[in-house]
Amino acid sequence: MNIFRLAGDLTHLASVLVLLLKIHTIKSCAGISLKTQELYAIVFATRYLDLFTTYISLYNTLMKLIFLGSSFSIVWYIRKHKIVRRSYDKDQDTFRHYFIVLPCFVLALIIHEKFTVREVLWAFSLYLEAVAILPQLVLLQRTRNIDNLTGQYVFLLGAYRALYILNWIYRYFTEPHFVHWITWISGLVQTLLYADFFYYYFQSMKNNGKLQLPA
């Protein structure tokens, strides 16, 4: 464990807890893409299924349980909670996320570390995580401006992946055989997807107005 990875995990944890807290306290999910939340639930379900078979550390197990629990409860809130679900604008959140699930699955069948169920699902979860934010970014473009909590959520998610890139660089130089091209490339693609959001996010911080994304 290195500081970049710990900071990355804590930032990731903060992003989901900030979102869950927002939805729970103000009983609203305005501006949040249910599609992105469902994709993240699939990412965690397919990546953490080894939770019950391989024990790595208490930290690892605890974090996996928290991520699984929070992502599925966010999906539950938006789909099922009688008050929260009313604030979900499904006619804006129209990104056909099956169009990204299938290509990621096909890609995982082609590119993986080993052709086993666990490895293919692991690669699938990495490809899916890289593009899971797309419905949320599309929704942000549509709704033009966003409230601060949604901005913070996307910002923390981007920061978590950027910190992970530092972690991979650190591990590459400190651990001889630590090579995970699949993780590195999908992680890099994911961070690049956030790049333009970061640009507008910092612009809005500068003139500290509402975050206006270009049409």
């Binding site: 570390e113 692991w122 630590f178 995970h180």
Partner: peptide
Amino acid sequence: DSDSEDKDEL
């Protein structure tokens, strides 16, 4: 090659 056991990252 990196065996699948060293998937210690979240």
